[in-house]
Structures are given as structure tokens and as C-alpha cells.
Design a protein around this nucleic acid. Sequence first.
DNA 1: TTACTTGCAAATCGTTTGCGATATA
DNA 2: TATATCGCAAACGATTTGCAAGTAA
Lengths: 142, 142
Amino acid sequence: MRIITNTVCYLMSERPLKITKQRAVILEELRKLKTHPTATELYELVRKRIPRISLGTVYRNLEVLADAGIIRKIETAGTQKRFDAMIENHYHVRCVNCGRVDDLPVPPIREIEDVLHGFTDYKISSYRLEFQGLCPICKDQP
Amino acid sequence: MRIITNTVCYLMSERPLKITKQRAVILEELRKLKTHPTATELYELVRKRIPRISLGTVYRNLEVLADAGIIRKIETAGTQKRFDAMIENHYHVRCVNCGRVDDLPVPPIREIEDVLHGFTDYKISSYRLEFQGLCPICKDQP
DNA sequence: TTACTTGCAAATCGTTTGCGATATA
DNA sequence: TATATCGCAAACGATTTGCAAGTAA
């Protein structure tokens, strides 16, 4: 169970996280977006509401929110990291042309976990699956 | 068919790529390794044979070799990019503790491609699957 | 010659960090 | 008052780039 009040976020068996104004606005703006912004993109949005906020604060708070499990930092092939307000497990698609990242609401693929047995000496804990292609906008362009 | 001679590499229907001394040594050192080095790691190795080579040259040539399809640039979750002399499709495992990256010789998982239909408006061209866990060395440590 | 490649250093990009000021419990 | 967070600017690590000199067809 996760409850987010105005000022404090309670997570199961974790200590409360103070929700400052900056933190709240960052979270709100992130939740508005279906695609997953970079820190800089988010900074530009947040700046419209808190003009004096600094990029460092955005980075710091994205880190804090991700550590708390409230958002997710997604590591895609591009150079910049992107952030996601949806923390349930799901896959992502990335446009190789414009870099946009969307969710892919397909069910988890069982076979991925099944296939590993005997193939590695690593102790596998997770995997990342990222699809690549052209987004609806880029695919219709010359 | 791909033929690499001393000085020129011919790729099907692409223009020949001059193999300079630097380029050849970079490629040789990369091919010696089972794990996949970062540009800096490779630079240190190459430097033992060409002491005056610069890091910029290593980066430039890795780019050229990757563009030509002779090596592959692999984008894993870490910050640094890693490079791979094996260009056939395969999956990678990354150690979350030390960053080491190995090949995972499992057969391609058909279900991954099958599951997509109807779930996205993207034109999907490829996917990346990366496993994460602890490598044989790190998993036996406290 | 002509086109490419090199070494070097500086620039760039995304991100992190130190610090003194500020806000909040 | 004690603690955490802020804005700012500087630092950082990885990578790219401009340039003049070098190399090879």
C-alpha cells in the first residue's frame, strides 16, 4: 500500500519521505506525461511553475523519488536517463529517430526467465527488455 | 560474406574500410577478450602496443568499426558504453556489482517477437534484452 | 595531389557535488 | 534548534570535436 499525502509519503516499512514543493511539482509533472521525460525535459516543465528551481534540484529529487520507489529511473539505449511515474513492471519502446520512450503494455514474457537455466554462472536477479523502432510520428516521415 | 585482409575490409555492398595500424590493433585486442571492454579499458590495452595512441582515436575507430558492422557497440545500463567483437545476435548479462558484461549463449526467444502484435503503434525493428545479476566472482563475496 | 587518419587539447553533454542560505519539523 | 533541502556554480566522467600535422593511395 502506498499513500501520498500533501507533505509526507508513507511507503511500506520505509521511513517517511518529506514532500517539498519542488518534489511535489516534479512528481506531478512527471505523472502528467505518458512518455518518459529526461531530467532536462522535466526541468523545463517544472520551471514554468517554480521559475527559480535548479536543474540540480530536479536531479536530486528524481534520485530521491526513485530510491523511495515512487518513480522509476529507466535505463534505455540513449545517453540520457529517463524517468517514469509508473512503477509496476512493464516494457518500453524507444524511437530510434527522436528518442521518445513509451510504455508497452504487453504481459510479462515467461519464457525469458525460463530459458536461462544452465546457460550462465551469473546469479540473475532481473532483466531489462527494451524494444526499438519508429514511433507513430517518425514512421510516417521521409 | 565478410573478409578482413591486412589493409582493407570488404563488406557486402559497402565501400572498403581502410584498416590502419591503430584500427587493426584495436580490433585485435577487442577480439582477444571474452568480456566486453569499455573504450577506456581498450585504450589501456592498445596503449601497450601503440604507446602514443590517443583516447580520441580509440573512440573514433570504435565508432567506425561499429558503423561498418565489424564490431558492435552495446548499450547496457551502466554509464559507459561497451564494445563487442561478436556481431551475431545474442544476449548479455551484466554484473550489477562490478559492471562486467558477458555473453549469454541462449537461443533467441521467439515469444518476444510474437507478443507485440496489436500492442503498439510503433514500427518495431529490434529489441535489446539484458540480464542483470551477480557475476561468478561477485556472487561469492560478502 | 587528394582524401583520410592521427595525436592533442579543448569543448561538450549529462550528471553530481560542495557550500552557504533557506525552509521545515 | 536541528535537520533536510534549496539554488547556484563548479566539478566530474564519458565522449566528441577542431585543428594542424602525418600517412597512404
